[in-house]
Nucleic acid binder design. Sequence first.
DNA 1: TGTTTCAATGTTACCGTTTACATTGTCTGA
DNA 2: TCAGACAATGTAAACGGTAACATTGAAACA
Lengths: 335, 335
Amino acid sequence: MTNIKKVSELAGVSTATVSRTLKSPDQVSQATREKVLEAVKAAGYRPNWLASSVKSGRSNTIVVLVPNLVNPFFMRIIGGIEQAAQEKGFSVLLGDTQGSPEREHEYASMVLTNRADGLIQLDHSFPFSAADADLAEDLPMVSVCERIATEKKYPVIELDNYAASRALAHHLLGYGHKHFAAIVGQISSQIYRERLAGIRSVLQEEQIPFEQAQITGGAYTIEAGIAGVEHLLSLPQRPTAIFCFNDDIAIGAVHAIKKAGLRVPEDISVVGFDNIKVSAFIDPPLTTVDQPAYDMGRRAVEVLVSQIRGEPLVRSKEVLPFQLIERESSGPAPL
Amino acid sequence: MTNIKKVSELAGVSTATVSRTLKSPDQVSQATREKVLEAVKAAGYRPNWLASSVKSGRSNTIVVLVPNLVNPFFMRIIGGIEQAAQEKGFSVLLGDTQGSPEREHEYASMVLTNRADGLIQLDHSFPFSAADADLAEDLPMVSVCERIATEKKYPVIELDNYAASRALAHHLLGYGHKHFAAIVGQISSQIYRERLAGIRSVLQEEQIPFEQAQITGGAYTIEAGIAGVEHLLSLPQRPTAIFCFNDDIAIGAVHAIKKAGLRVPEDISVVGFDNIKVSAFIDPPLTTVDQPAYDMGRRAVEVLVSQIRGEPLVRSKEVLPFQLIERESSGPAPL
DNA sequence: TGTTTCAATGTTACCGTTTACATTGTCTGA
DNA sequence: TCAGACAATGTAAACGGTAACATTGAAACA
């Protein structure tokens, strides 16, 4: 291992001078600087990051807890996180939790052991184990999309899910739909409640019933979309419009509807959520709500890093703008 | 900061005893152990990972260089990497390179600075900068799917792309196709050459021409698929079967073909590569080659970790099995 | 010329663990 | 009763940097 001592001997200076040459070159004379840099080159020296970090007590690393790596929406968020983190000199430790609390505990505890300085949670659970909960008191943590289920208010970057689903509902009402259904994602999450409330509020204003039987789902997957449609088509009163709580569900729903011999949107309109890339290119292209995933990731890092730096929290909640994307999976209600 | 010293004072023992209690409890007497563990709990002590790592000289971390986070195929690989890494006690630093050499250099240099112990490269470039190249001599590095372009042979986990594209070609020949085209991904990569060679070899055996004009593309994206089809449809001799070098390209191709008023597969057959999740649920479902992405990620970690541990390399190349998935995007050639 | 100042560099303590080596004390066996 | 063995614990030196403080020497100024 080529360490700073070897370089200092090679250059005929002290280790402090080598360190200074690399960290604050203006404190070192021109001549010495050149000498040292030459020695660095000759020895092939790169400072040991672990050693500097243990000294500074900072790892300049953040952990990101992702429920599902294959979800392209999450990956767009992570793209933003990566970009912003790199700009701020942080690196990103990936925590693929698969929704498992044990995995979450494990990754979350990295912040307790100085392996990471902060945490971004994309799921809605409080990621620390009960045993660690009190230690986790004031740790830098930010949630994106979801809201962490705990008393203490952690900053959150989110979408106005309530308004967005109201927009979707109005969009479908404008097409004359009267029979609605929803295929929801993970139950018990904040998102679930807000989106459902948004839909409910609009339908209530119009005095349109929205029965419990027409709410199905349980996961944000294509399979959940397929199973949801199979259930809905078996009901006595078949819906003419289906809210899917993300685009994966919607893709499954469209697939299942077509497989059942029905048409989208002529027989049933389908709307999604997230606006993932592929949604624009399936048949029919999906009406959905665009979430600024990349920017959400960026903001999350900015907020987290300012927390890590101990700066005061400006806003504990940031709501980013959504955009209704009207495509061809939604249309006039059948007569 | 609660450190080991505080705990040792609280327990009335030396720091060494605290360390031993946590790392090798059998060296400590029952009574002391209990005393120490109680103090650990009372102080809310968690050992500082940075400090242990600097001592051991190991970060138990691997960097993964990903050209594109949003590609679900890469994410499946990364899922396997994550899983295997966790099992082996490693964590994963994500490096989203976007194909930029500077980004690659930056992430790759983490291995030089002890921030990570090894590197998995999903792209085909040698990720170290020219200045670092000689330092990078014997660093643990594994490439997945692609082959790293350098003299020294790094272990590689890959698919038999040649055989896989031969299988696709035979599949389409079986449907009586005579006019072929390819929409390729990144030119100059190993994958590009092997897949093209596979197709060429089959067509040559059958004495079927495969002109340069019918090879188009440049990126592994939906947009490249769309642009590719637009180009191919403008040719005097329109192909009846199109090889797409990944499923994203194929999704774009199918979209563009349908938009042009043609049918898949009645007018043009389309085949993809990778078997990403959504490929089974688009209309028509995509004929493609399944790559065991998850297992490739797992194997990459296993090979990398054994390299990190200094174990001798068993095989420098592992070829994992592919599977031809015949779905409805390919069919009999039009008359 | 003597004092002050300051830039350049060296010395050394420290970050929080781990661990080789030293010490203590108890138990065993002759 | 005492040497030897061994288990339990303490002491202190690492790991590879960084930075506060100390030292040196030359320039600046009165």
